[in-house]
Design a protein around this nucleic acid. Sequence first.
DNA 1: GGTTTGACTTGAA
DNA 2: ATTCAAGCCAAAC
Length: 129
Amino acid sequence: MPTPDPALSVAEAPTFRERVVATVRAIPPGRVATYGQVALMAGAPLAARQVGGILSRLSELEGLPWQRVVNASGGISTHKIGAGQLQEALLRAEGVEVGPQGVDVGRYGWRPAADVAPRVSGPATPVEP
DNA sequence: GGTTTGACTTGAA
DNA sequence: ATTCAAGCCAAAC
């Protein structure tokens, strides 16, 4: 079966760490996911912390859209380690508005289901300004 | 091996 | 609204 992504798929990844990476890679540009959401998709619903821990130590962040991961409130958790400015810049470069409180999760939050099966009637993903 | 840690989350004071 | 505490889980020491 066709694996659209060149990278390892979430299901294929044997370790939690790799599943996290695969999940983050699956976040579409211009959208953000929370640590808890990533943890859930990676198979460990309550390991939100570990997600951040893993990303912080990954050296191969190049090519990984780690910037699309924010905390449950939409805040930029990387300010804690000094990468906040960088993350905000990267997000803005994708068209995500970053305010003083972070990003609007309701607006930019990733909805995997919406990507796969957009509803027939009703507003499409209101991501554009 | 066990212990410590953390880019979190949630609920209560 | 803001601050405090406890819980949780995989990786690093």
